[in-house]
């Protein structure tokens, strides 16, 4: 189950119009992702930390999420220093360590964490439904928004169907081994899951047609673009431009 542990709350960030939060997070994330120098990246990391603190979400849960992503980033620390082009400082037989690779890995780490923290504080603080509605208000193509919402709704149903199949093979004594029988069984499981998902999609679409669906999705949410939302988006944009300026200044 996808849980929304950060969505409930009443911090200053929770009270900002979700559309403004989505727009601000997008602008900020793209800018940070495109930065290359250490100074703006470290500044961004600091800004992101402040935004997490402002959103008042449980820090323990935030660390857990960051840890998960950083495990993945660890791979860069293993691969990049050994494969990046440039001068080597240290060689051990055929293995060369490139300092430029280490620097690059460090930059990726800072960037990812900065972006992730801002997404946690701006985006994860709204429910999935609200996110969908803000996206459609921001003129993201209806079909994409719809795809996102339907995926969110049915991922659990498909997961349940997957577990049903797995249970049914387990109770009949299936133990995964490196045998042709095991591979065949897994292929059947995947095939069955695909068929069930596609049949489910047909039935859902039929049910929607029965209720008069003509391709348009209506949203019931009303958003309030109040003063504090405008102030918020102005501050975030200002900070983002500041980071951008640092990038330009420190770029040799």
């Amino acid at each position: 189950m996808i849980e929304e542990p950060f969505a409930a709350g009443n911090s200053i960030i929770h009270r900002i119009d979700p559309r403004f939060r989505v727009a601000a997070a997008t602008f900020y994330s793209f800018t940070v992702a495109l930065c290359y120098e250490f100074q703006p990246l470290i500044a961004a990391l600091a800004v992101s930390m402040v935004s997490v603190l402002l959103s008042g979400v449980g820090l323990k849960k935030v660390f857990k999420r960051l840890a998960l992503v950083n495990v993945f980033i660890l791979l860069f620390w293993i691969v990049l220093p050994l494969t990046y082009a440039g001068n080597t400082v240290y060689s051990l037989g055929p293995v060369h360590v490139y300092p430029a690779g280490i620097v690059f890995a460090a930059k990726i780490t800072i960037k990812s964490n900065a972006i992730l923290m801002v997404l946690i504080s701006f985006i994860a603080t709204m429910t999935f439904a609200t996110l969908g509605h803000s996206l459609s208000r921001l003129r993201i193509p209806e079909k994409l928004v719809f795809l996102l919402m339907i995926t969110y709704r049915y991922i659990f149903v498909i997961q349940q169907e997957y577990q049903k199949i797995i249970r049914s093979i387990k109770i009949r004594g299936f133990k995964p081994k490196t045998t042709l029988h095991s591979y065949k069984t897994f292929a059947y499981v995947i095939g069955m899951l695909l068929i069930r998902a596609s049949e489910r999609a047909d039935r859902v679409y039929n049910a929607m047609r029965c209720r008069g669906f003509k391709g348009k999705y209506y949203s019931l949410t009303d958003f309030q673009a109040d003063t504090k939302s405008w102030v918020f988006v102005t501050i975030v944009s200002g900070v983002t431009l500041g980071i951008l300026l640092m990038e330009v200044l420190f770029n040799e």
């Binding site: 429910t127 339907i150 489910r200 209506y218």
Partner: peptide
């Protein structure tokens, strides 16, 4: 299967889907 019928995130959205259409 009720899971085929309910596709909106919240109950109110789902129930108002028909009338809106």
């Amino acid at each position: 299967d009720a899971d085929d019928q309910l596709f909106c995130p919240t109950v109110l959205e789902d129930v108002s889907f028909g009338p809106l259409n």
